[in-house]
Simulated assay, not measured.
Amino acid sequence: MAIGDRARLTDWQLTVEARARRTRADLAELDGIAGTERERRSAAESLAVVDRVLELQERWWRLPAAWWSGWHIERAWRALHEAEVCTEAALPDLAGRMPSLRQRVAAYLPEDDLRRQALDMLQPGRPADTADRAIVVDALRAAFDASDDAHAAARALRNKMVAAAVLLFVVNTALGIVGLLRPEFLPMCAHLPSNEHIQACAAGAKTPGPLDVWLVQLLGAFGAMVAAVVLLLRRRPSLSPYVLIGYQAAIKVLLGAAFAVIGVLALSAGVAEGLTCITSQAALLLWAALLGYSQQVGTRLLDNYADRVMDHVRPLPEVSR
């Protein structure tokens, strides 16, 4: 791969490239060792797949489909994992690497998994025989399969969030257009407690105006952005090939705008009469921002689920060299 191509690599591609390079270094140690021809051939074929994926330059019109399906990410990782399995199982110093292999497998296989239990029973000080290597292959493949399945789960969640964000954007745009054309359909106003015949509207007028809905959505989005910033601050960095935090933030902002419109509409209908005290336009806009932040109640469930998914999708650590 040329230097110019490497400059365009993303984080997950850099990780795959580095691990593929180290796997090739381990594979070189097998040259001339009898009985490792099959493993070397299988590892070399898998590394060739990794190289083709990293070097592939998609046509621009195919990029959206490739991004949506994630085939290049998952194919590269699966091929790399297969190459690592074949290489690790054939190395002459497999017994010495047993503690690192156990740590690797423990990240994805539960304690009651028979393959993990069999791997834990192997003795690091005893030279590995054919049966030991078969146990290592089964345990590593099971752990890598779980990691690869987690990649697919993260991609599915990302695609769902993208679809939800697009739908929310369409709904918010439709609400804004309705408010622009027929302001009386979505009155973003509230009656003042001092005089029920006088209203305080979002844009400052006494009657619903064409910019009321857009202004309420803007304030609701601002309130939701506060929650998005909190999410950004508490999220730790990750080398996962799928990063969900941007899509989570987008849903928060769009949902905050929608919540603000619905909430102010409820205030206009007098649903919260007695619980709120809106005495001016500024008070109404403040409530719009607070209602936008209230989306955090619902999206917190999404944040917790996304955290669980990302905990499983992080790449497995490498065996210590």
Rank of each mutant, 00 (worst) to 15 (best):
I3H: 15
L9A: 13
L9H: 13
D11C: 10
L14W: 10
V16A: 00
A18E: 15
A18F: 04
A25Q: 14
L30C: 04
L30W: 10
E37P: 00
R41G: 11
E45G: 08
L47D: 06
V50H: 06
D51M: 12
R59C: 04
L63Q: 15
G70W: 08
E74C: 07
R78H: 03
R78M: 09
A79M: 01
T87Q: 09
L91T: 08
L91H: 05
L101Y: 08
D112N: 14
R115E: 13
L119C: 02
P124N: 02
P127Y: 06
V136N: 08
R141H: 12
A143Y: 05
A150E: 02
A163L: 09
V166F: 11
T173M: 07
L180M: 10
P183M: 04
P183A: 02
P183G: 03
L186S: 09
M188F: 01
C189H: 03
N195R: 05
E196P: 05
I198W: 07
A202L: 06
D212Q: 11
V216I: 07
V226G: 03
A227V: 02
A227E: 03
L244C: 00
G246M: 08
A250L: 13
L254I: 00
L255Y: 02
L265D: 04
I278M: 04
I278A: 07
T279L: 12
T279A: 11
A289M: 04
L290I: 11
T299H: 00
R300V: 02
V309S: 04
V313K: 12
V319W: 01
S320M: 14
